[in-house]
Design a protein around this nucleic acid. Sequence first.
DNA 1: TATCCTATTTTTAGCAAGCTAAAACTTTTG
DNA 2: CAAAAGTTTTAGCTTGCTAAAAATAGGATA
Lengths: 235, 235
Amino acid sequence: MEEPIQDLAPRISDCLKVIYDMQERGQKVSTSAVSERLGVSDATVTMLFKDFAAAGWVEHAPYRGVRLTPLGERKAMEVIRHHRLLELYLARELGYSWDKVHDEADKLEHVISEEFEDKLDALLGYPTADPHGDPIPSKDGVIPLRTGIPLPQLSQGQKALILRVSDQDPEKLRYLGQLSLYPETHVEVIEQAPFGGPLRIRVGEKPRQIEHMLGVELAEHIIVTPIEAGEMANK
Amino acid sequence: MEEPIQDLAPRISDCLKVIYDMQERGQKVSTSAVSERLGVSDATVTMLFKDFAAAGWVEHAPYRGVRLTPLGERKAMEVIRHHRLLELYLARELGYSWDKVHDEADKLEHVISEEFEDKLDALLGYPTADPHGDPIPSKDGVIPLRTGIPLPQLSQGQKALILRVSDQDPEKLRYLGQLSLYPETHVEVIEQAPFGGPLRIRVGEKPRQIEHMLGVELAEHIIVTPIEAGEMANK
DNA sequence: TATCCTATTTTTAGCAAGCTAAAACTTTTG
DNA sequence: CAAAAGTTTTAGCTTGCTAAAAATAGGATA
C-alpha cells in the first residue's frame, strides 16, 4: 500500500492512470469503460476495482463504478508524473514525434527507477508540461493548473493560445501536427457552422498564418486560453 | 523463432546474455552456474535450455551443459547491443556512475523499441564500446574485436592502456573508479609480488600519476593493451 | 576394471498470478 | 415491470516458477 510506485504491477499503474484520466474528463468510471481502454475483460477490471478499494485508493460502489480517494489521486499523480516526464523526454531529447511518445512512454514507465526519473527531471529543466501540454505533477503530487476552454467554445474573432491537445490517438495527433496545432501556438476561430458544424480557424502568428477547416470532434480536444489584444501587440 | 528480440520474455534474453558472457570467458555453461546468476532454480534453467535447443539457439547435451550455435550467438548479440548502448547512454547522457548503469540497463533493455535503440545509437554517435570498455555489437551482430591481456600478465615496467574493465559488481567498480582505473586510462605495472601477490601500479599520464596497490583478483578483470614508447612521446 | 558414491541435472507434481468465458446477478430503460 | 444493458461471480485456463524425487556423469574406491 505504501510501496513505491515503481513496484506496482504494470496493469495496476495503467489502470490507475485510466481512472484518473476519465475522472479528470468528468466521465463516470465504469468497469466496461476501463476494460475497453486497458484491453482486458470486464472480469479483470472488477477484480482490480476490488483490490484498489481494499488498498484505499478508490471508493467502489458495486455495479456503479469507482471514484478516486485522495490517496488514490496521489498514487495516480506519481504514475502520471513518470509517464509525462518520459513523453517530454522522448520528444525533446530523442526527437520522437508527439504521436509516438505515448506508446513508448507506456512501456518505459514501468521499469524506470526513482533515480532515472530525477535525472530526467533535471535534464529537462524541471518541466511543467508534456508535449501535448498536459501538466506534469511535481514530485509531491501537486499538479500545475492551467485552465482553458475547448476550442469550439471560443467566441468568433477571439484570438487564443493553445494550452493542451489532449488526445492520445496517434492518427489524430499526426493530423493535428500537420495543421501545426501544437501547444503554445496561436489560433483564432474565424467562423463556426451552427449545430456543431465544423470550424474555420486561423493558425499561427501574423506573418505566417494559415486557415483550416476542423471538425468539432477534433476541436473539442484542443484546449485554449483567450489572449488580450494587448498581449498580441507585444509580439 | 524469428521474432524480434524486443518480444522475448525478460528471462529469455537474460539467460541468453548469461550464456554468452560465460562462454566468452571460456567457462563451461552449466545449469547450476546459470541458475545462480539468474537467481532462479536449476529446474527453470533446464527448461530454458530445452527451449533454447528447440529454437536452435544452443546445442544441449543433457547433463553436460549448453553451447551457443551461430544463430544463438546472433540472438545474444542483439540482446547485448541493447544492453551496452543503454549503459553508455545512461553514463554519458544522464550522468550515471559506471557502477549503476548495469542494473538500470537490465530493466530498460526489455522494453525499448527498435526505434528507441536507433535513436540512442545516433545520439551517441554510433559508439563501439560501453562505459566498461565492453564492445557494442553492430546492428548486424558484428562485434568490434579489441584483444588485450589481463593486467597481471603485463611485464614489469611496460606501459599500457586500459581497454576493458569487465566486472559487473557495483562495489568493485566503485572501488576501481576511485583509483581512476577506467578504460582509456594509462597504467603501468611497477612490480608484482610473486605467487599471485598484489600489484604495484602507476595510474595516469605524466604530470599527474598516482601509485596504488591492487589485488590480482581485481587486476584480472582489467584488460589492457601495451603501448609503444613511441606512442607515449606523441602525447 | 568394475562398482559405488557424490555432485549435478532432469523430471515430476503442483503452486500462484493473472487472465478469460460464461453464468449469475443488478441496474437501467422502454 | 419486463427486457436490455451492464457488472460481478464462478470455474477454469496458461505461464512461469519451485521443491522434491528420480536419473545421470564421472571420479573415487576396491
